[in-house]
Amino acid sequence: MSIQIENISKSFVGDRKVSALQNISFQVEPGKIFGLIGPDGAGKTTLFRILTTLILADEGQATVQKYDVIKDYQKIRRIVGYMPGKFSLYQDLSVLENLKFFATIFGTTIDENYNLIKDIYIQLEPFRDRKAGALSGGMKQKLALCCALVHRPEVLFLDEPTTGVDVVSRAEFWDMLKRLQTKGITILASTPYMDEASMCDEIALIQDGQILSINTPSGLISEFDSPLYGVSADDMYNVMNDLRDHTSVVSCNTFGAEHHVQLKPDIDPTVIRKDLEKSGHENVRVELITPTIEDCFMNLMQQ
């Protein structure tokens, strides 16, 4: 196993005790992309900091490439790449200076591992003399990834690498991660965006310091136990209110142009359509849909 986490708990003592992680356990196989999916404040960053040896867990054990995060912290620091959620490069240094600096402190050079960062660096090349602070959000993330990769780490920790980045750059970023995976790097990435989950080999849904489920993206979807219906009509807002008041409806969440509705067992969806039409809604459409990761997350959250 590349990363092994057993019963990790961590709480912070402040004005009141906040339990950031409660009894977390999972493992990541070598060469896989593992996604940690959850909303802000779920405990993702805390877990990253424990695994990158920056903070100590209250309880439990964790290893990265078989090295213990407490005992062998110096060894771990040599073999991992870490990209914190907050842009942490030197804003007053240029792109090239940042990259050179991080290459040197990891005891390597840009040329030595150029083939690893080449795809990403090519995009940064035109701005190599620009100060890092003057880069766009997406470019900053690419530079941060370059700096985290320049020493050819065995395990890559990416804490919300795509937060604040536009849709196109996000997709590009995940393509890059996929390419890195082919070079044998294990990647643990976190994201609040559910749509990115499908890019991972395995995902853990995390909320309030607890893991709701660990599965492959398709496994998670197939675990969704009841049929899900997409409902749309002209007056979407009132449809939602009517659906939520309906006795046969278990849950109703809005996703873009339609409401995703779960019904009680053995309820015929046509009943819903008839009831909505009876309430005066026009162009009512109800059809069976495949759940998304977000549906699974909502479903698990409500349980």
Binding site: L54, R77, C147
Partner: peptide, 8 residues
């Protein structure tokens, strides 16, 4: 945070 997670 990054500097700590380095061999230095």
């Amino acid at each position: 945070e990054i500097l700590l997670v380095s061999p230095m």
